[in-house]
Design a protein around this nucleic acid. Structure first.
Lengths: 194, 194
DNA sequence: GACGCCCGTAGACGGTGTCTACCGGCTCAA
DNA sequence: TTGAGCCGGTAGACACCGTCTACGGGCGTC
């Protein structure tokens, strides 16, 4: 399959991941990746017919990384769903802050997917984790689990985005996103237990 | 001042706004705007030293438009803060859906601002409206008004973004964003009144 | 041993943003 | 009235981009 780790294809993706992490989304040009991978500018075309295809492969790597980090976090956290959701949320925001360029790329739907690649579905496993935990933490009067999970995810995502953009620090005067995160969790899951 | 409506500067911005609304953010190149405005490709440089400057001016127009639409909405809505926030939220989501390219551009911090232009601050008046309404609707046990407002705004924004991206429809199976919007409002402001 | 196929090379094309030299018409002063 | 200077737009160049295409060389296979 595509597990040929030493092949050019994998090397291009790895180079692109490295580049987007280090210099941001706008630095990820086909030619630059080819240059850093030590091949001619036309070489990527064998594996990625179009720039979008390469970017999508890179973003897919980002989703995989985020999912892995969430899973690793959850491994060390006790089974209370509320606690686990808090840890997950923290990981999500930390990922966005630490890998800003990648996070940006991951949700640039204009640059990605183009339908065929179904990149969006790459985020489904992560959402499934959220949805599962939400279903456990949900109170009887809450909205249906899928809706509640969607709203919570959107809240996390919005905080990550607007925080990175600088709007939230500016508007709220906060110096870190912790209060916002706690507020969001309490809003969707009810007041924190003692 | 820069109120010379018939000047090239204003014409360039107007052309750019039109272009981004019609064809999306990626279509907004300096040369294309110049072409459509009927001037040479170097002309914009007199007024916008860099592409980013022109994009920022266009995005600023977007924020102004959104703020105007929110204000117009609020003019016709009764004074109950909860009702007003609901209307505001609906307007926000509708704006994002109806002006997808512009909405995208408005929050592409990598394309904008570059510090000097303080584009972020253009969204402050809008946030102030949210914060004011939230302060009125806030329950005593809620988080501080600024935090609550920030979290709610982030939730709106996240819904707008992930909905447009297609993730939320895919993940939640919903066909419109109304349930998510209601869930978010109830989460942050408490259960809807009878 | 020759054929054919991968897979990468290299050049071209039209597009982009930016820089620079130019130039025409207007204002204003002598 | 005439001349100088500036203001604002033109036009060409440059490097870079993504994409397309023709080419070539090394490999395995008949």
């Amino acid at each position: 399959m595509d597990a040929d780790e030493t092949g050019l294809r994998a090397r291009l993706v790895a180079t692109g991941v490295d580049l987007v992490l280090r210099e941001g989304q706008s630095a990820v040009s086909l030619r630059e990746i080819a240059r850093r991978a030590g091949v001619s500018h036309g070489a990527p075309r064998r594996y990625f017919p179009t720039h979008v295809d390469l970017l999508s492969a890179i973003a897919r790597e980002g989703f995989a990384d985020l999912t892995t980090q969430v899973e690793r976090t959850l491994r060390d956290v006790d089974p209370d769903p509320r606690t686990r959701l808090t840890a997950l949320a923290r990981t999500y925001l930390d990922f966005a802050a630490a890998h800003r360029g990648m996070f940006e790329l991951m949700f640039r739907h204009d640059l990605l997917d183009s339908g065929r690649l179904r990149l969006r579905e790459t985020s489904l496993p992560l959402f499934a984790v959220v949805a599962d935990l939400v279903a456990q933490a949900r109170r009887p009067t809450d909205a249906p689990a899928a809706v509640l999970a969607g709203a919570l995810w959107a809240n996390l995502h919005g905080i990550a985005q607007l925080w990175a953009w600088g709007s939230l620090p500016l508007a709220t005067g906060a110096t870190d996103d912790d209060a916002l995160l706690r507020a969001a969790l309490e809003a969707h899951l009810g007041p924190a237990p003692a």
